[in-house]
Design a protein around this nucleic acid. Structure first.
Length: 277
DNA sequence: AAGCGGTCCTGTGTGC
DNA sequence: TGCACACAGGACCGCT
């Protein structure tokens, strides 16, 4: 479910709703999401503390607690963070934070892939090894162009969080369509112009998606339970067999490393870097 | 050493 | 209708 735009949407909705709230009690229904973290440890370090900031790094949500500790949440495929009245709950509530102010934050996750960690800083794993962050100062052409020095196919390269933080399957497909590049093309076979195209397009597509509050294919909701609308602007993802909006050719779906890749065989040919009329 | 495939979960949609 | 199987926004782990 959530890629950078969806996570950003959740973070923004949390900022306006729970920033400054004080955590009264943490309830853990499913310890699996905590992995090695002991429930008591989490409670001891976070209960009674204020949420002093809410940020995003890649697809991770960072709750700053008491001005220092970070509760780091990853939603994986089906996770949601919902702000609900204290007396409400959801079918897949795994962990909840009850606030003194009278609402609660629910980590809801149907498939139990999500995670919650407690860190001292962003310098710790798993945040430490994340790659370039598209809207940060560090996102520079000099670094970006180097990411392509690999035999990895373009789409897998874009999905690699150690290279670039935030893209998932939907946006990797969409960015490659807009760039007119074949998802199967090895990174090292792209030229400078093509890399430049991607450098520009990635923040552009992500910005559009954020402006639309993300993409809701099935389950994605922000913290108020509102879906996004960028699914209405997808050009290839989830559109197998439909005509390409540029040329009318049927969109193709193909497995790449076990994940679905969608592309227009005509607009995204191996040599082609740009659309032709 | 990079890069691929399997695995973790649970629900939904499809085809027989 | 019922059952089996494929597939789903992600990322870690282990093998080659």
């Amino acid at each position: 479910m959530p890629e950078l735009p969806e996570v950003e949407t959740v973070v923004r909705s949390l900022q306006s709703r729970i920033n400054g709230y004080t955590i009264d009690r943490i309830k853990i229904r499913d310890e699996k999401l905590l992995r090695d973290l002991k429930p008591d440890h989490l409670k001891r370090r976070a209960e009674g503390k204020r949420i002093t900031d809410i940020r995003r790094r890649g697809k991770y949500i960072l709750l700053e607690v008491g001005g220092e500790k970070l509760v780091v949440i990853h939603l994986r495929m089906t996770g949601k963070l919902l702000v609900l009245p204290s007396d409400e709950t959801t079918e897949y509530q795994r962990i909840s934070f009850q606030f003194q102010e009278g609402e609660k934050l629910v980590l809801d996750n149907m498939r139990r892939f999500g995670t919650l960690d407690l860190l001292e800083s962003e310098a710790e794993e798993p945040l430490a090894s994340l790659g370039l962050e598209p809207f940060r100062e560090e996102y520079r052409w000099a670094k970006f162009r180097e990411l392509f020095e690999t035999r990895q196919p373009l789409k897998l390269l874009l999905l690699d969080q150690k290279k670039l933080a935030g893209l998932g399957n939907i946006y990797a497909n969409e960015v490659l369509f807009r760039a007119g590049l074949n998802p199967l093309l090895p990174g090292q076979e792209t030229n400078t112009a093509e890399r430049e195209q991607l450098f520009e397009l990635i923040p552009e597509v992500l910005t559009e998606a954020i402006e639309n509050n993300g993409t809701t294919i099935d389950t994605f909701k922000d913290s108020a339970g509102e879906p996004g609308s960028f699914q209405n602007f997808l050009r290839v993802y989830n559109r197998e067999g439909e005509p390409c909006e540029e040329c009318g050719t049927e969109i193709v779906k193909e497995q790449q490393s076990g994940r679905s890749t969608y592309y227009c065989p005509d607009c995204q040919n191996v040599e082609g870097g740009t659309f032709e009329e």
